[in-house]
Simulated scan of single mutants.
Amino acid sequence: MPGTPTRIPGPEIALMGLLALALTPATPAAAHFQELIPSTEIVTEGGNTPVGLSLAFTHPMERGPVMEMAEPVQFGVLGPAGREDLKSALKRIKVDGKSAYTAEYRVKKPGDYVFFVEPAPYWEPGEGKMIVHYTKVVVDAFGAEDGWDAALGLPVEIEPLVRPYGLWTGNLFRGIVKQYGKPVPFAAVEVEWRNDGSVKPPADPFVTQVTKADSNGVFSYAMPKAGWWGFAALLDGPTPLTSPEGKEVPVEQGALIWVRTRDM
């Protein structure tokens, strides 16, 4: 009405606004997964023995974005001939403008080959920490089916309790989360499917599945769709690292393993 003075919101209105902002759910940070994906998880007699490997640091279920990946600290394989250093086989490529890597390994004899990578620490300013995801994947050659549970001695590692290949869709995968060789009770394990573009998650909780290990560090998860599944146990590292800004920051040590399921 004419002549009615404009009302200025009082302090109680301002307080309500602040409370509303504080109670607004924050958008969850997308899960980072170090990918180490072979061209096949089983090399058969008479098959194509060179195994191609793709390495990228990304968000598998959301199909990106890909994050810049510096040259790995170590990349190798534990197989019938023992441990081999494969760093010289790495080739840097660009994926969505970011550095990623490929490699090729020729299988020479029957056995299980445990490929692994220790990436360079990745600075995540949004979380204020460095990320190092120790990642492995097992490839069986010529039906040997021996050595799939071999330990690599990494600072953090998932020891498979189920043979991590020859898996049907719906199979239950089980593993032990270990840090410096000891089981980690009640460790949280994030699980993501490497999306081929055929699935659109209906809500954020469907992007990254979360399960917890029991008191012995053992976790399990039934994989509902064919494809590559990544299991990531994210643990606090014991020693801080220096960020690009020159500050000491905490370290996230990730123990990752990739397994593939196929439809029956």
Score class of each variant (00 low, 15 high):
residue 2 P to Y: 14
residue 4 T to I: 02
residue 6 T to E: 10
residue 6 T to V: 07
residue 7 R to T: 15
residue 12 E to Q: 15
residue 14 A to D: 10
residue 14 A to Y: 08
residue 15 L to V: 13
residue 17 G to A: 13
residue 20 A to P: 10
residue 21 L to T: 10
residue 23 L to F: 06
residue 26 A to Q: 13
residue 29 A to E: 05
residue 31 A to G: 07
residue 33 F to H: 07
residue 37 I to V: 14
residue 39 S to E: 11
residue 44 T to C: 12
residue 51 V to H: 06
residue 52 G to D: 09
residue 55 L to F: 00
residue 59 H to C: 04
residue 67 M to Y: 09
residue 70 A to N: 07
residue 72 P to W: 06
residue 73 V to C: 01
residue 73 V to S: 08
residue 79 G to D: 04
residue 80 P to H: 08
residue 83 R to W: 07
residue 86 L to W: 00
residue 86 L to R: 01
residue 90 L to F: 03
residue 91 K to V: 08
residue 96 D to R: 11
residue 97 G to W: 02
residue 97 G to D: 05
residue 98 K to E: 07
residue 103 A to G: 10
residue 105 Y to W: 13
residue 111 G to M: 05
residue 111 G to D: 04
residue 112 D to M: 04
residue 119 P to N: 11
residue 119 P to A: 01
residue 121 P to T: 12
residue 123 W to G: 14
residue 127 E to A: 13
residue 130 M to S: 06
residue 131 I to C: 01
residue 136 K to H: 02
residue 137 V to P: 00
residue 137 V to W: 03
residue 139 V to W: 07
residue 144 A to H: 04
residue 145 E to K: 14
residue 147 G to Y: 06
residue 148 W to A: 05
residue 155 P to M: 13
residue 155 P to F: 05
residue 156 V to I: 14
residue 156 V to L: 03
residue 158 I to R: 00
residue 160 P to C: 12
residue 162 V to L: 04
residue 172 L to R: 15
residue 172 L to E: 12
residue 172 L to Y: 02
residue 173 F to C: 03
residue 173 F to R: 10
residue 173 F to A: 07
residue 175 G to C: 03
residue 176 I to R: 12
residue 178 K to G: 00
residue 182 K to C: 03
residue 184 V to P: 09
residue 184 V to L: 09
residue 185 P to D: 00
residue 199 V to M: 14
residue 199 V to I: 15
residue 202 P to Q: 10
residue 214 D to I: 05
residue 219 F to Q: 09
residue 220 S to A: 15
residue 233 A to L: 03
residue 233 A to S: 13
residue 234 L to V: 13
residue 237 G to Q: 09
residue 244 P to A: 15
residue 246 G to R: 06
residue 248 E to M: 14
residue 251 V to L: 12
residue 259 V to L: 01
residue 262 R to S: 13
residue 264 M to F: 02
